[in-house]
Design a protein around this nucleic acid. Structure first.
Lengths: 209, 209
DNA sequence: GACTGTGAAGCCATTCACAGCT
DNA sequence: AGCTGTGAATGGCTTCACAGTC
Protein backbone atom coordinates (compact mmCIF):
# COMPACT_ATOMS: atom_id res chain seq x y z
CA UNK A 1 0.00 0.00 0.00
CA UNK A 2 1.44 3.35 -1.06
CA UNK A 3 1.94 6.04 1.58
CA UNK A 4 1.22 9.00 -0.70
CA UNK A 5 -1.85 9.60 -2.78
CA UNK A 6 -1.19 9.75 -6.50
CA UNK A 7 -3.38 12.08 -8.58
CA UNK A 8 -5.55 10.20 -11.02
CA UNK A 9 -4.41 12.56 -13.76
CA UNK A 10 -0.87 11.39 -13.12
CA UNK A 11 -1.83 7.72 -13.47
CA UNK A 12 -3.62 8.47 -16.71
CA UNK A 13 -0.52 10.20 -18.08
CA UNK A 14 1.77 7.38 -16.99
CA UNK A 15 -0.33 5.07 -19.10
CA UNK A 16 0.08 7.41 -22.06
CA UNK A 17 3.82 7.82 -21.49
CA UNK A 18 4.23 4.05 -21.41
CA UNK A 19 2.60 3.70 -24.80
CA UNK A 20 4.73 6.46 -26.22
CA UNK A 21 7.85 4.78 -24.87
CA UNK A 22 6.76 1.54 -26.53
CA UNK A 23 6.51 3.42 -29.79
CA UNK A 24 10.03 4.84 -29.27
CA UNK A 25 11.35 1.34 -28.60
CA UNK A 26 9.88 0.19 -31.91
CA UNK A 27 11.64 3.10 -33.58
CA UNK A 28 14.91 1.97 -32.03
CA UNK A 29 15.44 4.95 -29.73
CA UNK A 30 17.77 4.33 -26.83
CA UNK A 31 17.39 7.37 -24.58
CA UNK A 32 14.76 10.09 -24.32
CA UNK A 33 14.45 13.38 -22.43
CA UNK A 34 11.43 14.62 -20.47
CA UNK A 35 11.08 17.31 -23.13
CA UNK A 36 10.79 14.77 -25.92
CA UNK A 37 8.20 12.74 -24.05
CA UNK A 38 6.33 15.95 -23.28
CA UNK A 39 6.35 16.88 -26.92
CA UNK A 40 5.23 13.46 -28.03
CA UNK A 41 2.19 13.30 -25.78
CA UNK A 42 1.26 16.97 -25.48
CA UNK A 43 2.10 17.99 -21.91
CA UNK A 44 4.89 20.09 -20.32
CA UNK A 45 8.30 18.63 -19.54
CA UNK A 46 7.98 19.66 -15.89
CA UNK A 47 4.76 17.67 -15.77
CA UNK A 48 6.52 14.57 -17.02
CA UNK A 49 9.27 14.89 -14.41
CA UNK A 50 6.81 15.57 -11.60
CA UNK A 51 4.72 12.57 -12.54
CA UNK A 52 7.75 10.30 -12.50
CA UNK A 53 9.03 11.83 -9.25
CA UNK A 54 6.07 10.34 -7.37
CA UNK A 55 7.62 6.93 -7.88
CA UNK A 56 11.37 7.46 -7.76
CA UNK A 57 14.31 8.67 -9.79
CA UNK A 58 14.49 7.00 -13.16
CA UNK A 59 16.70 9.31 -15.20
CA UNK A 60 20.28 10.53 -15.42
CA UNK A 61 20.91 14.27 -15.10
CA UNK A 62 22.35 15.75 -18.23
CA UNK A 63 21.32 12.70 -20.24
CA UNK A 64 17.69 11.69 -19.92
CA UNK A 65 15.93 8.36 -19.49
CA UNK A 66 16.78 4.95 -20.89
CA UNK A 67 13.72 4.14 -22.98
CA UNK A 68 13.40 0.43 -22.31
CA UNK A 69 14.19 0.80 -18.62
CA UNK A 70 11.65 3.54 -18.04
CA UNK A 71 9.08 1.57 -20.02
CA UNK A 72 9.47 -1.46 -17.79
CA UNK A 73 9.30 0.67 -14.66
CA UNK A 74 6.08 2.30 -15.81
CA UNK A 75 4.51 -1.02 -16.73
CA UNK A 76 5.34 -2.27 -13.27
CA UNK A 77 3.91 0.84 -11.60
CA UNK A 78 0.73 0.46 -13.63
CA UNK A 79 0.40 -3.15 -12.51
CA UNK A 80 0.89 -4.35 -16.08
CA UNK A 81 3.86 -6.58 -15.28
CA UNK A 82 1.37 -9.41 -15.09
CA UNK A 83 -2.00 -10.15 -16.66
CA UNK A 84 -5.47 -9.41 -15.24
CA UNK A 85 -8.44 -11.68 -15.74
CA UNK A 86 -11.51 -9.84 -16.90
CA UNK A 87 -15.17 -10.60 -17.55
CA UNK A 88 -17.58 -8.58 -19.68
CA UNK A 89 -21.26 -8.50 -18.77
CA UNK A 90 -23.53 -7.53 -21.63
CA UNK A 91 -23.00 -8.79 -25.17
CA UNK A 92 -24.85 -6.09 -27.06
CA UNK A 93 -23.10 -3.86 -29.56
CA UNK A 94 -20.77 -2.31 -27.04
CA UNK A 95 -19.97 -5.45 -25.05
CA UNK A 96 -19.23 -7.35 -28.26
CA UNK A 97 -16.96 -4.61 -29.52
CA UNK A 98 -15.07 -4.59 -26.24
CA UNK A 99 -14.73 -8.39 -26.31
CA UNK A 100 -13.22 -8.23 -29.78
CA UNK A 101 -11.02 -5.20 -29.09
CA UNK A 102 -7.41 -6.28 -29.50
CA UNK A 103 -6.07 -3.41 -27.40
CA UNK A 104 -7.09 -4.96 -24.10
CA UNK A 105 -5.26 -8.20 -24.65
CA UNK A 106 -2.21 -6.30 -25.96
CA UNK A 107 -1.95 -4.44 -22.67
CA UNK A 108 -2.34 -7.43 -20.37
CA UNK A 109 -6.06 -7.88 -19.89
CA UNK A 110 -7.38 -11.39 -20.57
CA UNK A 111 -11.04 -11.34 -21.51
CA UNK A 112 -12.02 -14.67 -19.94
CA UNK A 113 -15.75 -14.58 -20.62
CA UNK A 114 -18.65 -12.51 -21.91
CA UNK A 115 -22.17 -12.93 -20.57
CA UNK A 116 -25.68 -11.89 -21.49
CA UNK A 117 -29.18 -12.45 -20.19
CA UNK A 118 -30.82 -12.66 -23.62
CA UNK A 119 -31.24 -16.31 -24.79
CA UNK A 120 -31.20 -15.15 -28.41
CA UNK A 121 -27.60 -13.98 -27.99
CA UNK A 122 -26.25 -16.73 -25.73
CA UNK A 123 -24.12 -19.12 -27.76
CA UNK A 124 -23.02 -16.52 -30.30
CA UNK A 125 -19.35 -16.70 -31.14
CA UNK A 126 -17.18 -13.58 -30.64
CA UNK A 127 -13.64 -14.28 -31.77
CA UNK A 128 -12.68 -17.28 -29.67
CA UNK A 129 -15.24 -16.52 -26.96
CA UNK A 130 -18.78 -17.81 -26.79
CA UNK A 131 -21.45 -15.68 -25.15
CA UNK A 132 -22.53 -17.45 -21.97
CA UNK A 133 -25.55 -17.11 -19.71
CA UNK A 134 -25.61 -14.56 -16.92
CA UNK A 135 -26.36 -17.50 -14.60
CA UNK A 136 -22.75 -18.56 -15.00
CA UNK A 137 -21.41 -15.31 -13.57
CA UNK A 138 -20.50 -16.50 -10.11
CA UNK A 139 -18.97 -19.80 -11.13
CA UNK A 140 -16.94 -18.22 -13.97
CA UNK A 141 -15.53 -15.53 -11.70
CA UNK A 142 -14.40 -18.16 -9.23
CA UNK A 143 -13.12 -20.58 -11.84
CA UNK A 144 -11.01 -18.02 -13.74
CA UNK A 145 -10.00 -16.00 -10.66
CA UNK A 146 -11.44 -12.89 -12.26
CA UNK A 147 -10.47 -9.55 -10.71
CA UNK A 148 -12.07 -7.06 -13.13
CA UNK A 149 -15.66 -6.77 -14.32
CA UNK A 150 -16.73 -4.69 -17.31
CA UNK A 151 -20.34 -3.53 -17.34
CA UNK A 152 -21.92 -3.10 -20.76
CA UNK A 153 -25.59 -3.62 -19.93
CA UNK A 154 -28.49 -1.12 -20.11
CA UNK A 155 -28.63 1.47 -17.31
CA UNK A 156 -31.51 -0.17 -15.50
CA UNK A 157 -29.60 -3.44 -14.97
CA UNK A 158 -26.23 -1.92 -14.15
CA UNK A 159 -26.55 -1.80 -10.35
CA UNK A 160 -27.92 -5.34 -10.20
CA UNK A 161 -25.08 -6.74 -12.29
CA UNK A 162 -22.57 -4.80 -10.21
CA UNK A 163 -23.81 -6.42 -7.04
CA UNK A 164 -23.61 -9.87 -8.58
CA UNK A 165 -20.02 -9.21 -9.65
CA UNK A 166 -18.97 -7.97 -6.22
CA UNK A 167 -20.75 -10.87 -4.54
CA UNK A 168 -18.74 -13.23 -6.71
CA UNK A 169 -15.49 -11.60 -5.61
CA UNK A 170 -14.61 -9.09 -8.33
CA UNK A 171 -12.49 -6.22 -6.97
CA UNK A 172 -12.69 -3.64 -9.76
CA UNK A 173 -15.45 -2.44 -12.10
CA UNK A 174 -15.26 -0.60 -15.40
CA UNK A 175 -18.72 0.81 -15.99
CA UNK A 176 -19.86 1.72 -19.50
CA UNK A 177 -23.48 2.22 -18.54
CA UNK A 178 -24.76 5.76 -18.04
CA UNK A 179 -25.72 5.14 -14.42
CA UNK A 180 -24.00 6.06 -11.17
CA UNK A 181 -23.13 2.84 -9.36
CA UNK A 182 -23.06 2.49 -5.59
CA UNK A 183 -20.16 0.38 -4.31
CA UNK A 184 -18.22 0.14 -1.05
CA UNK A 185 -15.00 2.22 -0.83
CA UNK A 186 -12.71 -0.80 -1.12
CA UNK A 187 -13.93 -1.47 -4.66
CA UNK A 188 -12.09 0.20 -7.53
CA UNK A 189 -14.63 1.80 -9.86
CA UNK A 190 -14.27 3.77 -13.08
CA UNK A 191 -16.95 5.12 -15.35
CA UNK A 192 -16.68 5.60 -19.09
CA UNK A 193 -19.61 7.50 -20.41
CA UNK A 194 -19.61 7.71 -24.19
CA UNK A 195 -22.46 10.21 -24.44
CA UNK A 196 -20.89 12.56 -21.91
CA UNK A 197 -17.86 12.83 -24.14
CA UNK A 198 -19.92 13.81 -27.14
CA UNK A 199 -21.84 16.28 -25.00
CA UNK A 200 -18.66 18.02 -23.91
CA UNK A 201 -17.87 18.48 -27.59
CA UNK A 202 -21.36 19.81 -28.14
CA UNK A 203 -20.96 22.29 -25.27
CA UNK A 204 -17.74 23.65 -26.72
CA UNK A 205 -19.16 23.87 -30.22
CA UNK A 206 -22.21 25.70 -28.89
CA UNK A 207 -19.98 28.22 -27.10
CA UNK A 208 -18.42 29.45 -30.35
CA UNK A 209 -21.56 29.76 -32.35
CA UNK B 1 -18.82 33.34 -26.77
CA UNK B 2 -18.80 33.00 -22.97
CA UNK B 3 -16.74 35.50 -20.97
CA UNK B 4 -15.70 33.07 -18.22
CA UNK B 5 -13.94 29.78 -18.61
CA UNK B 6 -15.94 26.81 -17.42
CA UNK B 7 -14.06 23.85 -15.91
CA UNK B 8 -14.37 20.75 -18.00
CA UNK B 9 -15.30 18.80 -14.88
CA UNK B 10 -18.29 21.10 -14.51
CA UNK B 11 -19.44 20.46 -18.07
CA UNK B 12 -19.13 16.73 -17.52
CA UNK B 13 -21.26 16.95 -14.39
CA UNK B 14 -23.89 19.10 -16.11
CA UNK B 15 -24.29 16.30 -18.61
CA UNK B 16 -24.78 13.83 -15.79
CA UNK B 17 -27.20 16.11 -13.93
CA UNK B 18 -29.26 16.47 -17.09
CA UNK B 19 -29.64 12.72 -17.41
CA UNK B 20 -30.59 12.42 -13.76
CA UNK B 21 -33.19 15.14 -14.20
CA UNK B 22 -34.61 13.27 -17.17
CA UNK B 23 -34.94 10.23 -14.96
CA UNK B 24 -36.74 12.33 -12.32
CA UNK B 25 -39.13 13.64 -14.97
CA UNK B 26 -39.97 10.07 -15.94
CA UNK B 27 -40.68 9.36 -12.28
CA UNK B 28 -43.05 12.32 -12.19
CA UNK B 29 -41.04 14.50 -9.81
CA UNK B 30 -41.87 18.18 -9.94
CA UNK B 31 -39.16 19.88 -7.87
CA UNK B 32 -35.75 18.79 -6.66
CA UNK B 33 -33.13 20.21 -4.28
CA UNK B 34 -29.39 20.44 -4.88
CA UNK B 35 -28.99 17.86 -2.11
CA UNK B 36 -31.19 15.35 -3.92
CA UNK B 37 -29.35 15.81 -7.20
CA UNK B 38 -26.05 15.50 -5.33
CA UNK B 39 -27.20 12.28 -3.76
CA UNK B 40 -28.45 10.87 -7.03
CA UNK B 41 -25.23 11.41 -8.93
CA UNK B 42 -22.64 11.11 -6.16
CA UNK B 43 -21.26 14.62 -5.62
CA UNK B 44 -21.71 17.28 -2.91
CA UNK B 45 -24.67 19.65 -2.89
CA UNK B 46 -22.35 22.67 -2.85
CA UNK B 47 -20.78 21.29 -6.01
CA UNK B 48 -24.14 21.13 -7.73
CA UNK B 49 -24.96 24.71 -6.81
CA UNK B 50 -21.52 25.99 -7.83
CA UNK B 51 -21.75 24.25 -11.18
CA UNK B 52 -25.14 25.80 -11.88
CA UNK B 53 -23.99 29.22 -10.66
CA UNK B 54 -21.62 29.50 -13.63
CA UNK B 55 -24.65 29.90 -15.84
CA UNK B 56 -27.23 31.77 -13.81
CA UNK B 57 -29.81 31.37 -11.07
CA UNK B 58 -32.17 28.53 -11.78
CA UNK B 59 -33.65 27.76 -8.38
CA UNK B 60 -35.92 29.25 -5.74
CA UNK B 61 -34.51 29.74 -2.24
CA UNK B 62 -36.26 27.65 0.32
CA UNK B 63 -37.78 25.45 -2.38
CA UNK B 64 -35.35 24.01 -4.89
CA UNK B 65 -35.37 23.65 -8.67
CA UNK B 66 -38.25 22.91 -11.01
CA UNK B 67 -37.19 19.64 -12.62
CA UNK B 68 -38.41 20.18 -16.17
CA UNK B 69 -37.25 23.77 -16.26
CA UNK B 70 -33.75 23.00 -15.04
CA UNK B 71 -33.56 20.08 -17.48
CA UNK B 72 -34.33 22.31 -20.45
CA UNK B 73 -31.85 24.92 -19.27
CA UNK B 74 -29.10 22.32 -18.98
CA UNK B 75 -29.85 20.88 -22.39
CA UNK B 76 -29.59 24.36 -23.84
CA UNK B 77 -26.31 25.04 -22.05
CA UNK B 78 -24.91 21.75 -23.35
CA UNK B 79 -25.88 22.68 -26.89
CA UNK B 80 -28.37 19.82 -27.03
CA UNK B 81 -31.36 21.99 -27.88
CA UNK B 82 -30.68 21.08 -31.48
CA UNK B 83 -29.13 18.12 -33.28
CA UNK B 84 -25.50 17.70 -34.39
CA UNK B 85 -24.48 15.93 -37.56
CA UNK B 86 -21.75 13.39 -37.02
CA UNK B 87 -19.57 11.11 -39.12
CA UNK B 88 -17.70 8.03 -37.94
CA UNK B 89 -14.42 7.07 -39.61
CA UNK B 90 -13.45 3.44 -39.16
CA UNK B 91 -16.00 0.63 -39.35
CA UNK B 92 -14.10 -1.98 -37.38
CA UNK B 93 -15.49 -3.43 -34.16
CA UNK B 94 -15.48 -0.15 -32.30
CA UNK B 95 -16.70 2.05 -35.12
CA UNK B 96 -19.55 -0.36 -35.85
CA UNK B 97 -20.56 -0.48 -32.20
CA UNK B 98 -20.60 3.31 -32.04
CA UNK B 99 -22.67 3.53 -35.22
CA UNK B 100 -25.26 1.18 -33.76
CA UNK B 101 -25.24 2.74 -30.28
CA UNK B 102 -28.69 4.14 -29.62
CA UNK B 103 -27.47 6.53 -26.92
CA UNK B 104 -25.97 8.99 -29.38
CA UNK B 105 -29.14 9.48 -31.35
CA UNK B 106 -31.15 9.73 -28.12
CA UNK B 107 -29.06 12.68 -27.02
CA UNK B 108 -29.19 14.60 -30.29
CA UNK B 109 -26.33 13.27 -32.37
CA UNK B 110 -27.24 12.16 -35.90
CA UNK B 111 -24.82 9.60 -37.22
CA UNK B 112 -24.95 10.63 -40.88
CA UNK B 113 -22.33 8.26 -42.27
CA UNK B 114 -19.68 5.69 -41.43
CA UNK B 115 -16.59 5.20 -43.57
CA UNK B 116 -13.79 2.69 -43.95
CA UNK B 117 -10.81 2.20 -46.21
CA UNK B 118 -11.12 -1.59 -46.41
CA UNK B 119 -13.02 -2.71 -49.57
CA UNK B 120 -14.08 -5.92 -47.83
CA UNK B 121 -16.11 -3.87 -45.33
CA UNK B 122 -17.46 -1.16 -47.63
CA UNK B 123 -21.10 -1.86 -48.45
CA UNK B 124 -21.82 -3.65 -45.16
CA UNK B 125 -25.10 -2.66 -43.59
CA UNK B 126 -25.08 -1.30 -40.01
CA UNK B 127 -28.64 -0.59 -38.91
CA UNK B 128 -29.86 1.83 -41.55
CA UNK B 129 -26.37 2.97 -42.51
CA UNK B 130 -24.18 1.48 -45.20
CA UNK B 131 -20.41 1.59 -44.77
CA UNK B 132 -19.03 3.94 -47.43
CA UNK B 133 -15.58 4.47 -48.87
CA UNK B 134 -13.12 6.83 -47.20
CA UNK B 135 -12.91 8.61 -50.56
CA UNK B 136 -16.37 10.00 -49.89
CA UNK B 137 -15.26 11.80 -46.74
CA UNK B 138 -15.02 15.30 -48.10
CA UNK B 139 -18.21 15.23 -50.13
CA UNK B 140 -20.25 13.66 -47.32
CA UNK B 141 -19.08 16.24 -44.78
CA UNK B 142 -20.11 19.01 -47.12
CA UNK B 143 -23.37 17.41 -48.19
CA UNK B 144 -24.60 16.66 -44.64
CA UNK B 145 -23.09 19.79 -43.05
CA UNK B 146 -21.24 17.59 -40.60
CA UNK B 147 -19.74 19.30 -37.55
CA UNK B 148 -18.39 16.36 -35.56
CA UNK B 149 -16.00 13.59 -36.60
CA UNK B 150 -15.50 10.39 -34.61
CA UNK B 151 -12.19 8.61 -35.11
CA UNK B 152 -12.25 4.84 -34.73
CA UNK B 153 -9.31 3.84 -36.92
CA UNK B 154 -5.99 2.23 -35.92
CA UNK B 155 -3.45 4.56 -34.24
CA UNK B 156 -1.21 4.81 -37.29
CA UNK B 157 -3.99 6.28 -39.46
CA UNK B 158 -5.52 8.57 -36.85
CA UNK B 159 -3.57 11.74 -37.64
CA UNK B 160 -4.13 11.34 -41.37
CA UNK B 161 -7.87 10.89 -40.97
CA UNK B 162 -8.00 13.86 -38.61
CA UNK B 163 -6.42 16.11 -41.19
CA UNK B 164 -8.87 14.95 -43.85
CA UNK B 165 -11.78 15.69 -41.52
CA UNK B 166 -10.52 19.17 -40.66
CA UNK B 167 -9.77 19.90 -44.31
CA UNK B 168 -13.37 19.02 -45.10
CA UNK B 169 -14.65 21.47 -42.49
CA UNK B 170 -15.32 19.42 -39.36
CA UNK B 171 -15.01 21.53 -36.20
CA UNK B 172 -14.85 18.89 -33.45
CA UNK B 173 -13.18 15.51 -33.11
CA UNK B 174 -13.89 12.63 -30.75
CA UNK B 175 -10.82 10.43 -30.86
CA UNK B 176 -11.04 6.77 -29.84
CA UNK B 177 -7.59 5.89 -31.14
CA UNK B 178 -4.73 5.60 -28.67
CA UNK B 179 -2.71 8.34 -30.34
CA UNK B 180 -2.21 11.99 -29.44
CA UNK B 181 -3.61 14.10 -32.27
CA UNK B 182 -2.20 17.46 -33.32
CA UNK B 183 -4.87 20.02 -34.17
CA UNK B 184 -5.08 23.81 -34.22
CA UNK B 185 -6.48 25.47 -31.04
CA UNK B 186 -9.79 26.39 -32.66
CA UNK B 187 -10.68 22.72 -33.08
CA UNK B 188 -12.56 21.03 -30.25
CA UNK B 189 -10.86 17.73 -29.46
CA UNK B 190 -11.60 15.00 -26.94
CA UNK B 191 -9.89 11.70 -26.44
CA UNK B 192 -11.50 8.53 -25.16
CA UNK B 193 -8.89 5.94 -24.46
CA UNK B 194 -10.39 2.60 -23.50
CA UNK B 195 -7.11 0.99 -22.48
CA UNK B 196 -6.13 3.90 -20.25
CA UNK B 197 -9.29 3.35 -18.26
CA UNK B 198 -8.52 -0.30 -17.68
CA UNK B 199 -4.96 0.61 -16.77
CA UNK B 200 -6.11 3.03 -14.09
CA UNK B 201 -8.07 0.14 -12.60
CA UNK B 202 -4.98 -2.02 -12.84
CA UNK B 203 -2.89 0.61 -11.05
CA UNK B 204 -5.34 0.82 -8.18
CA UNK B 205 -5.63 -2.94 -7.91
CA UNK B 206 -1.84 -3.27 -7.88
CA UNK B 207 -1.60 -0.72 -5.05
CA UNK B 208 -3.63 -2.88 -2.68
CA UNK B 209 -1.91 -6.14 -3.38
C1' DG C 1 25.90 22.43 -21.98
C1' DA C 2 22.24 19.49 -21.16
C1' DC C 3 18.88 17.56 -18.52
C1' DT C 4 16.91 15.69 -14.10
C1' DG C 5 14.77 16.27 -9.58
C1' DT C 6 12.40 19.35 -6.49
C1' DG C 7 10.96 23.21 -3.29
C1' DA C 8 8.20 27.24 -3.90
C1' DA C 9 4.81 29.86 -6.24
C1' DG C 10 0.78 30.13 -8.82
C1' DC C 11 -3.49 28.63 -10.32
C1' DC C 12 -7.72 26.26 -10.40
C1' DA C 13 -11.46 23.47 -8.42
C1' DT C 14 -13.91 22.03 -4.39
C1' DT C 15 -15.70 22.69 0.14
C1' DC C 16 -17.24 25.60 3.82
C1' DA C 17 -20.28 28.54 5.94
C1' DC C 18 -23.56 31.90 5.96
C1' DA C 19 -26.41 35.80 4.16
C1' DG C 20 -30.60 36.16 1.61
C1' DC C 21 -35.13 34.58 0.00
C1' DT C 22 -39.61 32.13 0.28
C1' DA D 1 -37.49 26.18 8.59
C1' DG D 2 -35.64 25.08 4.29
C1' DC D 3 -32.89 25.74 0.50
C1' DT D 4 -30.34 28.64 -2.90
C1' DG D 5 -26.47 31.56 -4.19
C1' DT D 6 -21.84 33.07 -3.14
C1' DG D 7 -17.52 35.08 -0.97
C1' DA D 8 -13.84 33.06 1.60
C1' DA D 9 -11.02 29.26 2.86
C1' DT D 10 -9.04 25.13 1.66
C1' DG D 11 -6.86 21.65 -0.87
C1' DG D 12 -4.59 19.81 -4.85
C1' DC D 13 -2.43 19.94 -9.33
C1' DT D 14 0.59 22.39 -12.46
C1' DT D 15 4.16 25.51 -13.61
C1' DC D 16 8.30 27.92 -12.46
C1' DA D 17 12.93 28.25 -11.62
C1' DC D 18 17.06 26.58 -10.12
C1' DA D 19 20.39 23.59 -7.59
C1' DG D 20 22.48 19.26 -8.57
C1' DT D 21 24.64 15.93 -11.63
C1' DC D 22 26.72 14.01 -15.72
Amino acid sequence: MKAFKIPEATVMRLSIYSRYLHQLMDEGEDTVSSGEIANGVGVSSAQVRKDLAYFGEFGTRGVGYKVSELYLQLMKILGLDHRWNTIIVGAGKLGSALALYQGFSDRGFNICAILDINPAIIGNQLGNLEVQSLDQLSSLVGQHQIQIGVIAVPANHAQDVTEQLLQAGVKAILNFSPRVLKVTPDIVLRNVDLSVNLEILSFNLALNR
